[in-house]
Every structure is written in structure tokens, then in C-alpha cells.
């Protein structure tokens, strides 16, 4: 029977929404699942973790050194906990998880699995390689399994549970070589194309640089980043750093709205990981409709302002 530890990511007293997705992986593996919260004051976050369905115990590790989470400081504490009898230790596949998990694995002398996207058994998983162009099925050797979870591949489990919250005692020597200096939050009126949760893109059909305003206006209304197809960039409507596609940026937003983009395969290569693709295009035969989750045929110059007014 597996005994699984999930290392919680959190900030400003809020549990990271990815933790409930990692729980989905833990449940697919099967076994007892504990969530551990490292902080200088863990209780409030641990209570949120306790609500995630499937949590056996929400553990708290309070230490002033955990006020800001850093892989090098977390790793020895996680290792001390894992040695208490866990078979698996799972992290969110985000900056913190990726900073910490390899360090934990190295200290345990085991390999690490990055970006689990499907679970076959307690020891076998699918993970992406080559930027998602080849999916490998891997089998872990004996020993503790340390892994990060590709959050985009899983739905969060429900949060109506009520596990107990317990303080865990961890004895580990913490390094002093790493000091947190601060965080400069992303401050931009318009979100960065690469990291935006929503992206609106325009194509050749926009017809001119001026007409792109309709895309910017709409994007600002819904708080989205703005991209463009290579055809639009080549036509000189927008600068090259807005190009989405194989030769531009490869993005994976939750929502991608393609306006007047035919969907050349080089463009599609840049958006294949988007969760929901919406396409608006005059040409009902445009290849973009082959991959769009929601398609609307028509003139974007009338449809987009109309949509903007309805949201």
C-alpha cells in the first residue's frame, strides 16, 4: 500500500490551487495521502489542505526559515519527513516544485519523475518530453518515488473534506547559504503573452496595424495577453515578439481566442497545449476549426465587438 506525501505550495496564506490537482494524481496512485505545509505559520493553509478530498492528514511544519519557500531549504525537511515511511512524494509541477523535487530526489539517491501527465500504476507514469512532442511511459526503479505533476493535465479534486491538521516534527539541519530578498509581482497592464491565462490572437484577416486595435480592446476587456499569427507579423501589422507558433512563442493558456487566423500548422504547433481554443473566422473551411473547441464562422469585425459587449 502506498503512502503518499504531497508538498503544498502556497503564498500569502493561500494554498496553491495546484495542490488539489496533485491530489488527483495521488488518488490515481492509491493509498494514504498526507499534505504537508511548510511555513512560518502553517495552520491557516493546512486547514485549507485538510478540505481537499482524499487528504488523510494535513501536516504543518512551522519554522521561521519557511517564511518564504525555497527548494534548498525545503529539501532536507522533506527528506526527513519522507524517511518516516512515505513511498511517494509529489510536488506541483511549478517553479517551487521544480526547484525542490530534484533536490529531494538527489538527497534520497533516487531518480525523479518530472511532469506526470497520466498514472498507469503506483510506479508507472506518462510524462512529456521534447516540448510535449513525445509522450513517454516510464517505470520507476525501486525506492521512494519523487515526482512533479503537470498541473494542466489534471482536474482538481473537490474540497469538501475535513482531515485532521497535525504538527509534524522534523529534525533537519537547514542551510544558511540561501536568503530570500523579495518578490516583484508581475506588473503589467496587459499580461505577458507567455504566461497569460488568456490569450487573444489576430491573423492576416485583421488587414492592418490599425485594425489590430480591435484585438487589443477585446483582450483588455477580458484581461488577456495578445498574440498574432506569423502571417500578421510578416505583413507588418504587429511586432515579431507577438508571434505565436512554432517559430514564435509556444503558449499554453487556459483560453485561446484565434481571430481571423486560418490555423497554419506552424501556428497550431504553438497552441496545442491551450486548454480551450476558440476560433472566429470567415472561412468555414479554415483548418483552425479542426482543432478549435468552440468555433464561430463570421466576420470578426462585427463579432468581436459584439462578444465584447456581452461579457
Amino acid at each position: 500500500m502506498s503512502k503518499i506525501l504531497i508538498v503544498a505550495d502556497h503564498a500569502n496564506g493561500k494554498l496553491n490551487s495546484g495542490v488539489a490537482k496533485v491530489m488527483a494524481v495521488a488518488q490515481a496512485i492509491g493509498g494514504d495521502v498526507d499534505i504537508v505545509v511548510f511555513s512560518d505559520d502553517s495552520k491557516a493553509v493546512a486547514e485549507q489542505a485538510a478540505k481537499i478530498n482524499g487528504t488523510a492528514k494535513a501536516l504543518t511544519v512551522d519554522n521561521a526559515a519557511n517564511a518564504n519557500l525555497m527548494g534548498a531549504v525545503l529539501a532536507p525537511q522533506v527528506v526527513a519527513l519522507v524517511k518516516g515511511g512515505y513511498t511517494h512524494v509529489l510536488f506541483c509541477g511549478n517553479a517551487l516544485g521544480k526547484d525542490t523535487a530534484p533536490r529531494v530526489a538527489a538527497l534520497l539517491g533516487v531518480p525523479q519523475v518530472s511532469d506526470i501527465m497520466a498514472v498507469h500504476s503506483a510506479t508507472s507514469f506518462d510524462r512529456p518530453t521534447y516540448a510535449g512532442n513525445a509522450i513517454t511511459t516510464v517505470e520507476c526503479p525501486e525506492g521512494t518515488i519523487v515526482a512533479t505533476v503537470r498541473l494542466a493535465s489534471f482536474d482538481a479534486v473537490a474540497e469538501d473534506g475535513s482531515a485532521s491538521v497535525e504538527a509534524a516534527s522534523v529534525s533537519a539541519t537547514l542551510p544558511s547559504h540561501t536568503r530570500y530578498q523579495g518578490l516583484q509581482a508581475q506588473k503589467s497592464d496587459r499580461p505577458d503573452l507567455q504566461s497569460a491565462g488568456k490569450v487573444v490572437s489576430g491573423g492576416r484577416a485583421l488587414g492592418s496595424s490599425d485594425n489590430f486595435k480591435i484585438i487589443f480592446d477585446f483582450a483588455d476587456k477580458i484581461g488577456a495577453g495578445v498574440g498574432a499569427s506569423r502571417a500578421a507579423v510578416d505583413s507588418g501589422y504587429v511586432p515579431n515578439d507577438m508571434q505565436v507558433g512554432q517559430t514564435g512563442k509556444i503558449i499554453a493558456p487556459d483560453l485561446y481566442i484565434a481571430c481571423g487566423i486560418s490555423g497554419a500548422i506552424q501556428h497550431l504547433a504553438g497552441i496545442k497545449d491551450a486548454k480551450v481554443i476558440v476560433a472566429i473566422n470567415k472561412d468555414a473551411d479554415a483548418p483552425i476549426f479542426e482543432v478549435a473547441d468552440i468555433g464561430l464562422v463570421g466576420d470578426l469585425f462585427t463579432l468581436l465587438p459584439e462578444l465584447q459587449s456581452k461579457l
Partner: peptide, 17 residues
């Protein structure tokens, strides 16, 4: 297939600027 999906398969790339 159409031309652009074909060119894509040639992995053609040029420095843009």
C-alpha cells in the same frame, strides 16, 4: 495538403530580423 502545412514539415527557419 496546403502549402503552409507543407513548408512547416520542411522545418524551415530564418532569423526574422
Amino acid at each position: 495538403f496546403d502549402k503552409l502545412s507543407s513548408v512547416f514539415l520542411s522545418s524551415t527557419n530564418h532569423e526574422e530580423d
